[in-house]
Nucleic acid binder design. Structure first.
Length: 262
DNA sequence: CGGCGTGTTCAGAA
DNA sequence: CTTCTGAACACGCC
């Protein structure tokens, strides 16, 4: 699930149920998700501290604990779940933060990423030093600079060090809305096309954040990419699929003309 | 058994 | 140096 809108939703869960609450215990069901910190150190550091106001940077969630910070990344299958403490642990609840009013659970099936512990704000900033500007707040001028790179536009938009927060589904959706083939070279986009891309990104993010994920609406490309014979919701043409930037990619061959044969 | 996947990183090729 | 591809990580589903 997790792209920017999903992580924004997890931030909301932590803000609503965690902020201001004291951690009474930490349960590490699977230390395999802990990165650079052991279960003992994590438990000792966190127990007794209170959750501060969580912050999202790209696909990362930062939770300050009056001194140290928790850094969480959700990979492809992670989530943050609130529970009153009455529901038995889910098989994929890898770490549970027990608070005074219930539990926040880091749930993740594939364990592709995990949880980091930073000693202070500087250490957290160093861990995230390579992150590019956040896709939700980047300005047009900075977006222009980033997307003028020579490589395929999909590769740039997915590159977290260029622009932070977009993933495979969002990038396909944005390119489709902007009518730009995902394999187009960034430095060959016209200024009008770059503007379409920027506007599509803003609109897609604005629409996706309240849902907490990329909505599979029938009017969106994302609502059609999994069907047996998917067609473009705009023109009805059969959608094309292939690979770009190493990922499964879906586009409309009519709305988004191929850069090589067009 | 084989293939696939809303993420990231690394090795190796061009 | 830049850009791209494929494999790897781990797990469940088809």
């Amino acid at each position: 699930m997790p792209e920017l809108p999903d992580v924004e939703g997890f931030r909301g869960v932590v803000a609503e149920y965690g902020t201001g609450r004291r951690i009474t215990a930490v349960r590490v069901a699977d230390p395999g998700v802990l990165r650079g910190v052991g279960a003992g150190e994590l438990t000792e550091t966190l127990t007794g501290r209170s959750f501060g106001e969580p912050e999202r940077r790209g696909k990362w969630l930062l939770v300050p604990l009056s001194g140290p910070l928790l850094l969480l990344h959700f990979g492809m299958t992670g989530s943050m779940v609130w529970d009153t403490g009455e529901t038995p642990p889910h098989r994929h609840d890898r770490v549970t933060f027990v608070l005074t009013n219930g539990e926040l659970r880091y749930r993740d099936m594939r364990k592709l990423r995990g949880i980091w512990l930073a000693a202070d704000q500087d250490a957290a900033d160093r861990l995230l030093a390579d992150l590019g500007p956040d896709a939700l707040t980047v300005g047009r001028r900075e977006f222009d600079g980033v997307t003028r790179a020579r490589r395929q536009i999909k590769a740039t938009l997915m590159d977290q060090s260029a622009l932070a927060g977009l993933g495979n589904l969002l990038v396909d959706e944005i390119c489709w809305r902007a009518r730009i083939h995902p394999r187009r070279q960034g430095d060959r986009l016209t200024e009008a096309e770059r503007g379409e891309l920027y506007r599509a990104m803003r609109r897609v993010l604005r629409d996706a954040i309240p849902t907490g994920r990329v909505p599979g609406r029938r009017s969106w490309l994302t609502g059609h990419r999994d069907g047996p014979h998917p067609t473009c919701p705009r023109c009805g043409t059969a959608l094309a699929h292939g690979r770009a930037a190493g990922r499964t990619t879906v586009w409309c061959p009519r709305c988004q003309p191929d850069p090589d044969s067009g």
